[in-house]
Simulated assay, not measured.
Amino acid sequence: MTIDPRLNRIVAAQPHPLLFATISGAHLYGFPSPDSDFDLRGAHILPIERVVGLDISDETLEDSRVIEGLEMDIVSHDVRKFFRLLLKKNGYVLEQLYSPLVVQTTPEHAELKQIARGCITRHHSHHYFGFSETQWKLFLKESPRRVKPLLYVYRVLLTGIWLMRTGEIEANLVKLNESFRLPHVPDLVARKSSGPEESILNEADIAYHESEYLRLRRELQAAHDASSLLKTPSAETRSAMNELLLRLRLS
């Protein structure tokens, strides 16, 4: 994906300096449609006077609107909050940190990516179990049933299995399927990418996708059970993250 120059200007206009800014959502997952918005995610650095008082504001900044003709969904956390989320089993922030769709980066972003490898644990599987269940329920609830939530189900489960097996973050469903080779995924991606008119599923296919959903959940559980990943982030990882946070804040 080529980064639209308008995204660079949007990032430059943010109210606080950014540690990094990346693209998440459908563009990261490999199945954007013509009407997909841009999910811009990042970590910003609040000035020290904003974080030492009784009240802390702007820990999370959100902005959803059309900017320079682009439909934007912007979410950014202050670095302290972002680091704390990394120390929990939060797959969202891992995917944002390691997204290859980089709009802005810094040397400290690269440093954080190295440190955060120590935050990847086998218990991140719980994030992907929960996210896939939410998307599956959304898929079943809708009428007519759409391709989009079903693609999210497959994307989330394959990302979780891959993470448990390799310790690597890969959120792009098309790339993941080069290894998993699910025969129905290319057609689903093509239908989602072509626009709304192709995004409705045939009811006859539901039973098949349900069996695949349950099978992949079993695979994720097996990958969790066999994983050699840590159970919790190490003390060294937490210490390195704290040292980086202090440097960012004091600079």
Rank of each mutant, 00 (worst) to 15 (best):
Tyr213Arg: 13
Arg191Pro: 00
Trp162Pro: 00
Thr166Pro: 00
Leu201Ala: 08
Leu173Glu: 01
Met164Glu: 05
Ala226Trp: 02
Pro196Met: 04
Arg218Leu: 14
Pro186Lys: 14
Leu220Tyr: 04
Val185Gln: 03
Glu203Asp: 14
Leu158Gly: 04
Ala171Thr: 11
Arg217Thr: 09
Glu168Ala: 12
Ala190Thr: 11
Leu216Ala: 06
Pro144Asp: 05
Arg215Gly: 13
Arg191Trp: 06
Glu178Arg: 15
Glu198Thr: 15
Ser179Trp: 10
Pro144Trp: 05
Asn202Lys: 02
Lys175Pro: 00
Leu163His: 09
Pro233Arg: 05
Leu158Trp: 06
Leu151Arg: 03
Ser179Met: 10
Leu214Gly: 02
Gly160Met: 04
Ile161Trp: 08
Ala207Asp: 13
Lys175Cys: 01
Asn172Val: 08
Val189Trp: 01
Ser199Asp: 12
Gly167Glu: 08
Glu168Met: 12
Ile161Pro: 06
Val174Met: 04
Glu198Gln: 12
Leu188Thr: 06
Tyr154Pro: 01
Glu203Gly: 06
Glu210Tyr: 11
Thr232Ile: 12
Glu168Ile: 13
Leu230Met: 13
Ala223Ile: 10
Glu178Ile: 06
Ser228Asn: 13
Tyr213Lys: 12
Arg238Pro: 00
Leu176Ser: 09
Leu188His: 06
Leu176Val: 12
His224Arg: 11
Arg145Met: 05
Gly160Arg: 03
Pro233Met: 09
Leu214Lys: 14
Tyr154Ser: 07
Ser193Phe: 01
Thr232Pro: 00
Glu212Ser: 07
Arg191Glu: 01
Glu210His: 15
His224Ala: 03
Arg217His: 15
Glu198Val: 04
Arg181Cys: 12
Leu214Ser: 10
Arg146Glu: 11
Gln221Phe: 05
Ala171Gln: 02
Tyr152Asp: 06
Arg155Gly: 05
Arg145Ala: 02
His224Ser: 04
Arg217Ser: 04
Asp187Trp: 01
Leu230Trp: 03
Ile200Trp: 02
Gly160Gln: 05
Ile200Ala: 10
Val174His: 03
Glu168Gly: 03
Pro144Ala: 11
Ala235Val: 14
Tyr213Ala: 07
Asn172Pro: 07
Arg238Val: 14
Arg218Asp: 12
Glu168His: 09
Thr159Ile: 06
Ser234Phe: 06
Ser143Pro: 00
Leu176Cys: 07
Ala235Glu: 13
Ala190Met: 10
Pro144Leu: 09
Met164Thr: 05
Glu203Met: 04
Leu229Arg: 07
Ala222Val: 08
Arg165Ala: 08
Lys141Gln: 11
Ala240Trp: 00
Leu220Ile: 08
Arg155Phe: 00
Thr237Leu: 00
Glu236Gly: 09
Ala240Asp: 08
Glu197Lys: 13
Pro233Gln: 02
Asn202Gly: 04
Met241Lys: 05
Ser199Ala: 15
Phe180Asn: 07
Arg155Val: 03
Leu158Gln: 10
Ala190Trp: 01
Pro186Glu: 10
Glu219Asp: 12
Ile200Thr: 15
